[in-house]
Design a binder for these strands. Structure first.
Ligand SMILES: [Mn+2]
Ligand SMILES: [Mn+2]
Ligand SMILES: [Zn+2]
Ligand SMILES: [Zn+2]
Lengths: 151, 151
DNA sequence: TCTCTATTGAAAATCATTTTCAATTATAGA
DNA sequence: TCTATAATTGAAAATGATTTTCAATAGAGA
């Protein structure tokens, strides 16, 4: 989804298009890493110095509500957001550079049926996330201890 | 693991056994739901009224460090802790009552190999969590909208 | 252009968590 | 058992993140 798509969704849902929102949308839409509100703020201020952190929070809230972005849970914290994909998707996160790569084609049906049988639960949803090193980070220094995450 | 086991681990690691710690350990060890520091505090105070919330935070911190408990990530928040299992385990959470059930025997090797090939990532870890209704909650009212979680 | 109301950023408020600190207490050793 | 000592405690203060308040501003439809 492009910046223009996001702006159209905001507009179609009755939200006004302002410079502040455009600045936030441009940064978040473009990022392949999950960003915290403060990171978005710092980055967006280079093109829009009068932007307030409060507006970043408010814009991220709306983008999340419209399913344009989603919160990313990581060992080091769960405040960061990344551009969302449509439908059921999972992500793969680089423990060194933070790069997020979506993948599909997970086949958990057997696993889920088994667990449902064993436990008696009726299973409605699942979360699957993979962590590792992206090709670039892996080749640059495969043994370095990751710095982005604890534990 | 019993309360006594946990206390022994604390003691073996040079931590003193105090009434405050015992109160926290008893509550958390016994719970089959993930509990926030405030929930632990409220619950532990019935048997130990002079307990401070700070001590709950400090005790949970030590229990986590010793791998006796682990943080649980949920759509509604990521501040709750539950008794941990040894080794690689995953959990299944009831969206109505919060009950946590561990399961093993996930077979993600094929999936992970596929994704590694497709993406070029070197995959080190994974998170898998299932959400649904436990047998009890499902039979009592299978269609009710879950109240514990948002989104 | 004009009007109306959503949106803005600053400041204040709130909420969760951490730090500080002086008093207390668990525990190792005498 | 008694003592010395350092770990631990809870209250209060500090911090940090997020939310609310509010008066000024500015999109967007008429
Ligand atoms: Mn899936
Ligand atoms: Mn697994
Ligand atoms: Zn990387
Ligand atoms: Zn249940």
């Amino acid at each position: 989804m492009t910046v223009e798509n996001w702006l159209k969704v905001l507009s179609d849902n009755g939200y006004r298009l302002t410079d502040s929102r455009r600045a936030v949308v441009e940064i978040v839409n473009d990022s392949s890493r999950a960003m915290t509100p403060l990171e978005v703020f710092d980055s967006a201020r280079s093109s829009h110095p009068e932007l307030g952190l409060v507006t970043v929070y408010r814009t991220l809230e709306k983008l999340e509500e419209l399913h344009l972005i989603q919160r990313v849970h990581q060992p080091a914290g769960c405040q960061a957001f990344i551009s969302a994909r449509q439908g059921h998707q999972h992500m793969l996160l680089c423990q060194r550079c933070g790069q997020v790569t979506y993948f599909e084609g997970d086949d958990l049906d057997n696993l889920i049926t088994n667990i449902a049988d064993k436990t008696g639960y009726s299973i409605k949803e699942h979360w699957l996330q993979l962590f590792g090193l992206c090709a670039k980070c892996h080749s640059s220094n495969p043994n370095q201890v990751p710095g982005l995450f604890h534990s």
